[in-house]
């Protein structure tokens, strides 16, 4: 990666980040991330079988097929409790990596991640579902995966089905569901878990207008009870109205954290500049 004009802009902005993130005493943080670096491995032409690996090792003396790059480099920020924190950035900026780090599935190479309370993801809806099972069986399975006792799941089932509007299809194997029905069930199950910190990755696009309104209501009541949402999105309009703060990620670093309107403005400017440099080269 050579130094491009976009890079220079980033460097100027890193200082501003420090000011915006000055610790406010007395405000509890839901998520505290300090100096997190994630060295990601990107594999190129990796042999996928043991046979090829052995041949590669013997014939070409090649053992290492990856290059490391920092998907996140030295990221530090806090998310106060009860906020909606938006993350924007172009593809490959590290948005999903950051969510995975907060979710706890990707341990950072350096730095610390602290989440106060439970954390749950709305990253891939219905991730633990089994297509052969029906809605009720899947609710049990997914609940058990989150260590919920069976009695508690049983109590919640009517409400989940009602919210997903699937009462009439409760005993249909979900492989016969439409994608909308599947997403509704996935959302209803995840929303019911009511975590302290909810990670959302582009899922507001599911379902029809009416269901989307319902989801937004869930988010509102979720926030009203003092919980926190971290949301990654490309629909900037939606985000600017929802988020309290937006962080702009660029090549694994935050170039801006703060006021949503400013973040979006800078994102657009940066996007424009990147495209210009790409066109010139």
């Amino acid at each position: 990666m050579s130094a491009s004009p976009a890079n220079l802009v980033e460097n100027q902005n890193t200082q501003a980040v420090g000011f915006d993130q000055a610790a406010e005493p007395g405000v509890a943080n839901a998520v505290e991330i300090s100096n997190v670096t994630v060295a990601y491995r990107s594999y190129k032409e990796r042999p996928t079988t043991l046979k090829e690996t052995v041949i590669g090792a013997i014939k070409h003396r090649k053992f290492r097929y990856y290059e490391t790059f920092n998907a996140l480099s030295n990221v530090t920020f806090n998310i106060p409790k009860g906020q909606v924190f938006g993350i924007i950035g172009s593809n490959g900026a590290g948005k999903s990596t950051l969510l995975k780090v907060i979710a706890g599935v990707l341990p950072p190479t350096r730095g610390t991640v602290k989440v106060n309370g439970s954390v749950d993801s709305l990253i891939q809806l219905g991730a633990g579902f089994d297509a052969e099972l029906n809605a009720i069986e899947n609710i049990y399975l997914s609940g058990a995966l989150h260590k919920k006792p069976r009695a508690e799941i049983k109590r919640r089932i009517p409400e989940i089905l009602e919210f997903a509007e699937l009462e009439d299809f409760a005993t249909t194997p979900i492989k016969y569901y439409s994608s909308g029905m599947f997403a509704r069930l996935g959302f209803a199950v995840a929303a019911d878990r009511n975590p302290d910190v909810l990670l959302v990755d582009e899922v507001l696009g599911v379902g029809d207008e009416r269901f989307r309104k319902k989801c937004e209501k869930v988010f509102e009541s979720f926030l009203a009870s003092g919980n926190t949402i971290v949301i990654v999105s490309h629909s900037l309009g939606n985000l600017s109205s929802m988020a309290d703060q937006i962080g702009l990620l660029s090549r694994g670093e935050f170039t801006y954290i703060g006021d949503p309107a400013t973040a979006i403005e800078r994102y657009r400017a940066q996007d424009y500049k990147t495209r210009l440099t790409q066109n010139n080269s």
């Binding site: 089994d130 052969e132 099972l133 049990y140 399975l141 058990a144 995966l145 260590k147 069976r150």
Partner: peptide, 20 residues
């Protein structure tokens, strides 16, 4: 021990699926 609920649930799921 921690995931005993899930283990129970998924073993029954596999049995149900196999014999459904």
């Amino acid at each position: 021990y921690d995931y005993r609920e899930y283990l129970k649930e998924s073993v029954f799921r596999d049995l149900r699926k196999k014999y459904k």
